[in-house]
Amino acid sequence: MQFYHKIPGKLVIAFAAFVLLIVAGFIMMKRPYVSFSLSPQESLAVMSGDAHLLTLADAKQIIRKEDPGYYFVDIRDPYEYVKGHLKGSLNIPLTRLLDKAHIRSFRRLMADSVKVVLTGKDESSVNAAAYLLVQTGLRNVMALEGGYGMLAGENDQDSIPREKAEKAWYDYAALMKAAPRASESVTVAGPAKVKKPVKPQPARKGRSEGC
């Protein structure tokens, strides 16, 4: 019991520390500028639909008509953007997409009911970014189907941007069933094909022996 009387005013000290901790919490707390405003369930419903996908045909028409209701944002890296981009499109690299200034302008565009169309190398490069923005409450963001290369009629070397990426291009089941029959045609071509890889190997060996 001696301990009890050692420190005078310990209750006040402890209480002051507690209150200070909470005050410090209020001071230190930063409200994030962007946060998810859609619940996971709402996001699922939004993602299940096609409302945030701008089809290539529509996009071409919009560009031809120079529709002011659409604003194109190129999320590729600046050097790719410099090599070639859509007229009037703005370059915001993917990593900068959530910067305060950009979010603010997206919100302003949403207030003016202008759609923001994200374009990139192909659809899968803009898909996640677009739905990330949609989940933060920017309902005017859309992803461009295909990609910049298809829109411009150019062919990108790195990727082959294609339409309808989520459609089954092949009948997988039929492909598997047909496999034995297909094999014959392949086996005929097989040896011819397999011979080719043999070529570089002696070449490689020769190189290594040479040194």
Partner: peptide, 14 residues
Amino acid sequence: VAMVGLLYFNYFGW
């Protein structure tokens, strides 16, 4: 103290 503190901490994200 624990109740009030925890609820505030939850609000602060701690």
